[in-house]
Design a protein around this nucleic acid. Structure first.
Length: 597
RNA sequence: GCGCCCGUAGCUCAGUGGAUAGAGCACUGGUCUCCGGAACCAGGUGCGCAAGUUCGAUUCUUGCCGGGCGCACCA
């Protein structure tokens, strides 16, 4: 349990005891005692924690809220709570102010946990799957995919940090109508490139990229497919096309910092008979109707307006049928929680999917669908118009070329998923103060610069109690490179430097900007857990900005390298803790933490 | 027509059943003998509208207005 949570629990327990005591001697006459809730007041002057318990209980206790509050406070045992001062305020709030010395142990704790600081066991090892992007393998990744990639990857990182057992998955739509279309489009381009007269399919994919794909094939195999039967030719072209496209998507996502645990092919659901089995399950459970030669999912049984086709009258299952089989497969694999990230244009699908999950025998509330609103690109103050149909759109590759991976990821994850995102290309590209990405990264680089200077002067970050053997030593992310290279990083250089005495005096840290920074650092485990469990990765982006701002303020007000050895030691510790937190957060956000800029 | 999302400062967006609703940008004025000025400090306007639930609503409910998106034997 982290420091904040431990103090919070102690206060809640003490409140509960105070209430129980009042109940016992009949001062308040109620049957059941609610558990007090502690909140962090908006206003700093209202203390570190506050509870509204006196207000919520006032009516049942038939007592004036402020009077009740006073009685609670009188019985409140502050042993072990760090509570220094209690005030009754406003309509009946009880405000608790902590002795700021509670923050000092946190400073040491951060050092001990290092890469693991901020992680927790909030998720209790529950198995979670996050499926995101899942773009059609018929083209390049666009802005919507990019937003999904940043949100999904960050969310998965945060869930992992919060103690969930997380799997990242990409669902490959390599079956169905759009693949037919893809095949026809490839064929048209192929023949066209070889000088044949063809009419490009009406519903085909117009993107220039598939011309390049076919140029690649011609370079490899020449015109040998021209003579083939149409079906055979299309099969050959589409096999090549899919392989090429999926490879490109995978590479682009890797460049964007996204690595999946599983790439799941829709086609395998058709080939393995999983779809048929799922249809059987649905039929057994009584959710299938036959009508006009097609098979329907009885969505109306769940209060929907109309049923949905599962198998067309031509015998081919719909995307919906495959998707049900896919979700059944996910739950069959034993996930406790399944999260999908979809574009908002698929919102009509959400209720159906949840109903279908229930129909195959799983609890629909174990499925969460995060809908993300569309992205609008701005350049020079103008909207950049995009059209998928004509292939006129900016790709993720182009975006990364233009603004870089870090800026792109940060901008996508900076806003809540359900808010429309205006992506200002000029701003993301600008290396200036207006750009929040640079603001945050600058704080990290500035810290590293201070530590370098300290090292050159022969000073070092004080050595603190080393981590117990049971302490996790990595960030909790699989495939994380930065934890492995810590042996050569600045940190270890500093740690290897002549050690300062273990016993440093932290009580010299009293400046308001120091304490505010420490308080923010102490909040990290809670913030991570909250962002993860509420599925709100944008909270982490905000946390990073807030922390950077607090650091910059601290930097201006508190001279780190100074001629008071005790103060310098203590402040070096603050600075290095801030570095650790910034680095960890940037890491979960998928951004680099530059030591120089 | 039905359904989903959104409406908060000039702009882009946070936020919470509570006590004086925040941040960045933009605008104005300040801060540096010194650790990175990509920094800091100060300055002011706002919860689309109207009812309801509540001790208390920007938050929850309903209606309306405005914007976006869905409503195929497409995915």
């Amino acid at each position: 349990m982290n420091s904040v949570e431990s103090i919070r629990q102690k206060i809640i327990t003490s409140l509960g005891q105070a209430l129980a005591s009042l109940q016992q001697d009949g001062t308040i006459n109620v049957d059941d005692l609610p558990l007090a809730e502690l909140e962090v007041p908006r206003e700093k002057q209202h203390g570190d924690f506050a509870t509204n318990i006196a207000m919520t209980m006032a009516k049942k206790a038939r007592m004036n809220p402020r009077q009740l509050a006073q009685k609670i406070v009188d019985r409140f045992d502050r042993t072990g709570t760090w509570v220094q001062d209690i005030q009754i305020a406003g309509p009946g709030f009880i405000n608790f102010a902590l002795d700021h010395r509670w923050l000092y142990p946190v400073l040491v704790h951060v050092q001990a946990e290092d890469h693991a600081y901020g992680t927790s066991d909030a998720g209790q090892g529950k198995r979670v799957q996050v499926e995101f992007v899942s773009a059609n393998p018929t083209g390049l990744l666009h802005m919507g995919n990019a937003r999904g990639a940043a949100l999904g990857d960050t969310l998965a990182n945060l869930l992992r940090a919060a103690g969930f057992d997380v799997q990242k998955e990409f669902y490959i739509n390599d079956a169905g109508n759009q693949i037919e279309n893809f095949a026809k489009s490839l064929e048209a381009r192929y023949l066209e490139l070889l000088g044949h007269d063809v009419i490009f399919p009406e519903e085909g994919y117009h993107g220039h990229d598939i011309i390049e794909t076919m140029q690649g094939l011609i370079a490899r195999d020449g015109d040998r497919y021209v003579q083939m039967e149409t079906a055979e030719r299309r099969a050959a072209l589409v096999a090549y096309g899919l392989q090429e496209k999926i490879g490109a998507i995978r590479q682009t996502l890797a460049n964007f910092g996204v690595e999946y645990d599983v790439w799941f092919s829709e086609k395998t659901l058709h080939e393995s008979g999983a779809i048929q089995e799922t249809l059987e399950t649905l039929r057994t459970n009584g959710y299938v109707d036959e009508n006009e030669g097609a098979q329907w999912f009885k969505a109306t049984a769940f209060g929907e307006e109309k049923d949905e086709v599962l198998v067309r009258s031509n015998g081919i299952p719909t995307y919906f049928a495959a998707d049900i089989a896919y979700h059944k497969n996910k739950f069959d694999r034993g996930f406790d929680w399944v999260i999908n990230i979809w574009g908002a244009d698929h919102h009509g699908h959400v209720a159906r999917m949840k109903n279908a999950v229930q129909a195959v025998g799983y609890p629909p509330e174990d499925l969460d669908v995060i809908l993300m609103q569309l992205v609008r690109l701005f350049k020079g103050g103008e909207i950049v118009r995009m059209s998928k149909r004509t292939g006129q759109y900016i790709t993720l590759e182009e975006l990364m070329e233009e603004v870089g991976k870090d800026a792109a990821r940060f901008f996508f994850v900076m806003r809540g998923a359900d808010s429309h995102l205006d992506f200002d290309l000029d701003l993301a590209k600008s290396q200036s103060a207006e750009n929040p990405v640079y603001y945050v990264q600058y704080a990290h680089a500035r810290i590293c610069s201070i530590l370098r200077t300290a090292q050159d002067a022969g000073a070092a970050v004080p050595r603190v109690a080393s981590a117990p053997a049971s302490m996790p030593s990595s960030c909790g992310l699989t495939g994380c490179g930065s934890c492995d290279v810590s042996g050569t990083s600045l940190t270890s250089l500093l740690k290897a430097a002549p050690a300062a005495p273990d016993n440093i005096d932290l009580t010299v840290l009293t400046h308001p900007s120091e304490l505010a920074l420490l308080r923010k650092i102490a909040d990290l485990p809670d913030e991570v857990a909250r962002a993860a469990m509420q599925m709100e990765p944008h909270r982490m982006a905000r946390y990073a900005q807030d922390l950077a701002a607090l650091f910059h303020a601290f930097y201006t007000h508190c001279r780190v390298l100074n001629d008071d050895p005790a103060l310098q030691q203590a402040r070096l510790l603050v600075v290095d803790d801030t570095r650790i937190v910034l680095r960890n957060v940037l890491h979960w956000l998928g951004l680099t933490a530059p030591e120089r800029m």
